[in-house]
Nucleic acid binder design. Structure first.
Lengths: 149, 149
DNA sequence: CCTTGTTAGTTACATTTTCAACTGTTATCC
DNA sequence: GGATAACAGTTGAAAATGTAACTAACAAGG
């Protein structure tokens, strides 16, 4: 089985590839929960969590924080509103702007998923040393914020 | 801005979320190259690299190695064949099986992108210590192979 | 052989995502 | 004030993905 180039390069070592594999694998379990329990997509879960964690926000603010395109936000917000999980309030000053926040139902879903997220993450972290975790977070954050310029 | 729950939880610390952000950010630059230079998608790039690195393979083998669904492979292979980058050869023993390998054009695209991948990765790694890199790879590989069971 | 089950790969359809154009509103600058 | 640009958010069409059903070929047990 002839190799075409340098035999010491492994796809599994190529960082973007490896990161994607790890990200996908580590999202899967949590995805199953919000999907099966609330019929949510990744986008919807993210909007829900942003509102749950940081309180009332506008669509644009969520987009900036989550690095999500505005059309994704728009559709996620529409879905969550449909399911009575969030409420929109027009801004008094600027009529282009809408403030978003969670309804009771939204908060309840958020709290439920929040617990799931924590215990799910605990499982992921299980078997990782303190050092590994600190190192991982530092490096990942640096990578994640590379395009901020 | 009232927080709904425990204020010390940050979405940026939630591992699946952080991993996805890092994976996306770190794929972007390379994606631009294979997209603009060869009109490829992620799936196509992956198939190309598997064949470039590991030689002739069947679609199923690529699927197993890359953890890609067979429909993705099927479509990526069709696209690459269309662009004369790969060749299919029916297996002599088992007529369900097709062997895939790169044409001259495929190899040339692969070699080009391989160089891009290496220098791109070098940029990503730049500013990372040896320890950080080793730690990162170890942990990511562990996470990536969680669902192997 | 011949039924039943499994495997390799493709196709069809529904769901998501992306991209560009759109509406309505505010800001700028002459 | 009135043109023009910029911004918040939505919509529609095209591309990509996921899921299930499909074709064709092999395998195993009777």
């Amino acid at each position: 089985m002839a190799r075409t180039t340098t035999p010491d390069f492994e796809l599994q070592n190529f960082l973007p590839y490896l990161l994607n594999q790890a990200a996908e694998a580590s999202s899967l379990g949590f995805q199953n929960v919000y999907k099966e329990r609330y019929g949510m997509l990744r986008t919807e879960w993210r909007v829900l969590f942003h509102l749950g964690l940081y309180g009332r926000l506008t669509a644009t603010e969520i987009g900036t924080r989550a690095r999500m395109h505005k059309t994704k936000i728009s559709r996620a917000v529409a879905k969550l509103e449909e399911r009575r999980m969030l409420r929109r309030t027009p801004d008094a000053e600027d009529r282009r702007v809408e403030w978003l926040d969670l309804t009771m139902q939204g908060k309840s879903a958020y709290r439920d998923l929040f617990k799931v997220a924590q215990s799910y993450e605990a499982d992921l972290l299980n078997g990782m040393t303190e050092d590994e975790l600190r190192c991982l977070r530092t490096v990942l954050r640096r990578l994640a914020s590379m395009d901020e310029n």
